[in-house]
Computed example of a mutant assay.
Amino acid sequence: MYLIVGLGNPTREYDRTRHNVGFDTLDVLAEELNTSIGENKFKGCCAKGVIGGEKVILLKPQTFMNLSGESVRAAADFYKIDPEHIIVIYDDISLEVGQLRIRSKGSAGGHNGIKNIIAHLGTQEFPRIKVGVGAKPPRMDLADYVLSRFSAEDRVKMEEAFKEAVQAVQVMITEGDQAAMNRFNGHKEQ
């Protein structure tokens, strides 16, 4: 069984912001799996599906980004899912808009949602899909930037990135992290 977590902030105010690309990707995945993320459990909204014969739980923590680990830990404990079967999808400002980077483990890299998940799971050993949202403009506050929305042009790139991230999730589950890294990392780099 896999737990697929999309990070973001709840409430309409944060819809479609850079920080909510994890939520957006999970919506695309839910559609692909013909399910909807509506059940309120584990301080989040969740749904169940199957990818490549494996049961999957889709989870959007509703704790706000900086406390995402509370929701992830509750779901992982309930379903007895090991960290290496928890795939976390989130925004990354060090990647170009729409670029993906898949890792099987690693530090938080300054991302507060990931920092909190690491703290709650007690390990960095969980796979993740970073979705590029572009670099913060100089002199702009980081919080303001990640809570801002994409231009129409960039939104088109992001919609493609969400579909690609969904494919990456499927490859990670059916063929493994390394196959997904080989196929998706560095894609779209200039």
Rank of each mutant, 00 (worst) to 15 (best):
D82W: 05
G186L: 12
N20E: 11
E125Y: 15
G186S: 04
D91W: 14
L7F: 03
A165D: 09
V50R: 04
V50H: 06
I117V: 05
G106N: 06
L67D: 10
G176L: 10
L59C: 01
G69P: 04
I89Q: 01
D24K: 00
E39A: 09
N66M: 11
L33V: 07
V72N: 02
E31A: 12
Q124I: 06
I51N: 03
L121I: 05
I102V: 08
I173M: 06
G110Q: 08
I102K: 01
P137D: 13
R73G: 03
Y2V: 01
S68W: 08
S94R: 00
F78L: 03
K41G: 00
A135R: 04
V56D: 11
L3Y: 01
A165S: 10
S71M: 06
I129T: 00
K115T: 09
I93K: 00
M1N: 07
V88S: 02
S36H: 11
D154M: 07
G110K: 02
L58E: 07
Q99N: 09
C45W: 15
N9L: 08
A76H: 04
H19K: 01
L26R: 05
L26E: 10
T123H: 07
F184L: 13
M181F: 03
N66Y: 12
I118R: 00
G176F: 10
A168I: 13
G106S: 07
T25Y: 13
H111N: 07
T17P: 12
S68C: 06
E125N: 14
L3R: 00
Q167G: 15
G49D: 07
G49H: 06
K130N: 05
N34R: 09
G122S: 01
H120F: 13
F23Q: 02
G134C: 10
D82I: 01
P138Q: 09
D27P: 11
V133Y: 07
Q167T: 14
M1D: 12
I37Q: 03
I117Y: 03
K80D: 13
K80H: 08
N185Q: 06
N66C: 10
G98L: 09
R12M: 15
E96G: 00
V97N: 03
V97E: 11
S71R: 02
D24P: 03
V131H: 00
G52R: 07
A143C: 10
R12G: 14
K130D: 08
E13T: 10
Q62V: 03
V72R: 02
G132S: 10
M158V: 04
G109M: 07
L142Q: 00
F126G: 01
I51A: 04
G98N: 06
A179R: 12
G134D: 13
V146I: 15
V131G: 00
D24M: 15
T63Q: 04
A108S: 12
R128V: 02
V131L: 11
A161I: 12
K136W: 13
E160K: 06
K115C: 06
M65C: 02
T25C: 13
I4M: 05
N185W: 08
E189L: 11
A179K: 14
L58F: 08
A152M: 02
G53R: 00
G49N: 05
V166R: 05
A47F: 02
